[in-house]
Each structure stands twice: as C-alpha cells, then as structure tokens.
Amino acid sequence: MNFKRIQEVFLLAFIILDVFLVLMIVQNRNMQSENTNQSSANATIIKEMRRDEISVGKLSNKRSSGYYISATNDGNLANEMGNLRNQDARFENGAVVSTLRTPVQFDDRNPQNTIDPLMKKKSFVINGDDYEYDPNQSNSSKIVYIQKAMTSTLMDNNAKITFNLDEDGDIKSYTQTALTNIKILHESAETISQERALIWLYQYNEIPNNSKVLWTRRSYTKLLTIKNNGVYIPTWVIAIQTRNSKDVSIRRINAFTGSVLKTENVQGNFKNKITSGMEDN
C-alpha cells in the first residue's frame, strides 16, 4: 500500500470518527433537552397538584429496573412448624397462625430494633430472614413484616407476617404466609420513577382534591395467576387519604407501563409522610 493510499484510509477513518462523535453529541444534547423539558413539565404538574390542595412530599425522579417474576404459595410452612417454641401454632388456610405464650414487648418508636433479632430465630417464626419491617402497613394494632424478593419486596397478603398487639401494645400473636419458587420470567426492564407514577395517577384523576399522599413504595404485586403460579411485576403502591376522613385508598401503578391497577380501601393509622420505598433498587 503506497503512502497516498494510507493517507486516504486514515482520512476516511477520521471522518467516520468525527461523524460518530458529532452524532453522539447531538443525541446527548437532545436527551438533555428532553429531560429538561420533561422536568419542567413535571414541575408544572406538581404545582397544579398543590393548587388542588393535594399534599405530597419531595418526589424522586430516579428510575430503576425490575423483572416479571413468578411465585407460588408456600405450603411447606406446615412442615416447618416443629421448630417453633413457646407458642401455640396451627396451620390454617395456607397460613401459620400462632399465639405467643409470653407477649413480646418492644419500643413502639422503633419496633424493628426488638423484632429484627427475633426474626433470625427459627424458634420464633419460619424463615424470618426472608422478611423486612414495613412501617407503612404497621399501626397501633399490628406490626407488619413483608417478604423480600429480587432485592425488593412483595406486597401481597400471601407474603407477610402480621404481628397482632394486645391492649398493652405487646405482641400477642401473629399470622404468617409465604411465597416460594420465585423465578425470573423476563430479563430486567426499566421502570418509571416515583415522581412519574404520582403525576400519571393525578392525570388519570385517581388522586382527589383536598387529599394527602401518605406514602409510596415500589414493590412487587400480583398481576395475574396462571396454573397456580402468580405473576408479579414492579408496582408503585401509593396510599392516599382525603381530608376529614380516616379511610385510606391504596392505588397501584404498573411500574413498567404506568397503567393503573386495582384500588383498595383500607383503614388504619398510617405514617403521615411520603417515602420512596425501593428507590435504590
């Protein structure tokens, strides 16, 4: 290859590289512009929410990722009840139902400080390390622990431990359910942010005026059931309370698509601050 030919090859290579870099710069600027425009639009909508007297805390615009997963009810809990001590336990309707012979006292400001060490004991509950404290579902009559999965949690009545409190505020009994055979059905995909979930919920007219967002949490919830296997997806779970009412509505947003799932009406003394739940997962 002569010198002139070599020059032509290098010149062509530099031209291709320059074009590539220019395209990358343009793309990056477009993405920054889109993000800026989106952020500006989001800020405007949040102001509208506040004008409608909808109270929300600071919202995160951080996106994360998640999976489609499957799981089945754990019928093996009944076989592991033999390890439990100092309690009267029975297996009923797929759950362990147990009464403690000696109530457990705890600090109601930080119940996990007392309960977390107990959860590690096989004599206290079954596979306690599979659960974590959920302050949002806990109140003056119960302490709730929910099952962990895929570096996140499961918001499902079939995947939780509910500790019931007596009149002195001590743990007197509990009910435990669990899911097993948790499997990934599809590769990881991006999910919407906490901020985007609240905005879409507002735009769907699912947040009434004169209300307060008590808390949010991104967790896996059941989408459907196929042949006794539940299919779970990342979901933004949002608790909303209208002013002058004790009723709390639980809204769920599909964290993949932003579509609204079912609504639940519950009662309880929920935390009066917004939390981000799984933001770092």
Score class of each variant (00 low, 15 high):
residue 1 M to P: 07
residue 1 M to I: 04
residue 3 F to P: 00
residue 6 I to L: 14
residue 7 Q to L: 14
residue 7 Q to Y: 13
residue 7 Q to P: 02
residue 11 L to Q: 12
residue 13 A to G: 14
residue 18 D to K: 11
residue 21 L to E: 09
residue 25 I to A: 03
residue 27 Q to D: 01
residue 29 R to K: 12
residue 35 N to G: 00
residue 37 N to E: 15
residue 37 N to D: 13
residue 44 T to K: 11
residue 48 E to P: 01
residue 55 S to C: 03
residue 58 K to D: 06
residue 58 K to Q: 07
residue 58 K to C: 01
residue 62 K to H: 12
residue 62 K to R: 15
residue 65 S to M: 09
residue 68 Y to P: 01
residue 70 S to I: 02
residue 71 A to Y: 00
residue 75 G to Q: 03
residue 76 N to K: 04
residue 77 L to M: 12
residue 77 L to C: 05
residue 78 A to N: 10
residue 82 G to M: 11
residue 85 R to Q: 11
residue 87 Q to F: 03
residue 87 Q to K: 14
residue 93 N to D: 13
residue 97 V to N: 12
residue 98 S to M: 08
residue 99 T to Y: 14
residue 100 L to K: 08
residue 103 P to R: 08
residue 108 D to K: 15
residue 113 N to V: 13
residue 114 T to S: 02
residue 118 L to G: 04
residue 119 M to N: 06
residue 119 M to F: 09
residue 121 K to D: 03
residue 122 K to I: 01
residue 129 D to W: 02
residue 131 Y to V: 00
residue 140 S to T: 14
residue 140 S to N: 15
residue 152 S to C: 11
residue 153 T to H: 10
residue 159 A to N: 03
residue 165 L to G: 07
residue 166 D to P: 14
residue 168 D to Q: 13
residue 169 G to Q: 09
residue 171 I to V: 09
residue 173 S to I: 06
residue 183 K to S: 04
residue 183 K to N: 06
residue 188 S to D: 08
residue 189 A to T: 10
residue 191 T to P: 12
residue 191 T to A: 06
residue 195 E to H: 09
residue 197 A to S: 12
residue 197 A to V: 11
residue 198 L to N: 03
residue 201 L to N: 14
residue 203 Q to N: 13
residue 210 N to K: 15
residue 217 R to H: 11
residue 217 R to E: 09
residue 217 R to M: 09
residue 218 R to M: 15
residue 219 S to L: 04
residue 222 K to I: 06
residue 222 K to E: 15
residue 224 L to M: 11
residue 234 P to S: 13
residue 238 I to L: 02
residue 239 A to W: 02
residue 241 Q to T: 04
residue 243 R to Q: 12
residue 244 N to Q: 13
residue 245 S to C: 03
residue 249 S to C: 04
residue 249 S to M: 08
residue 256 F to C: 08
residue 257 T to H: 09
residue 259 S to P: 00
residue 260 V to C: 05
residue 264 E to Q: 05
residue 264 E to V: 01
residue 269 N to A: 08
residue 269 N to T: 14
residue 270 F to G: 05
residue 272 N to V: 10
residue 276 S to C: 07
residue 276 S to Y: 00
residue 278 M to W: 11
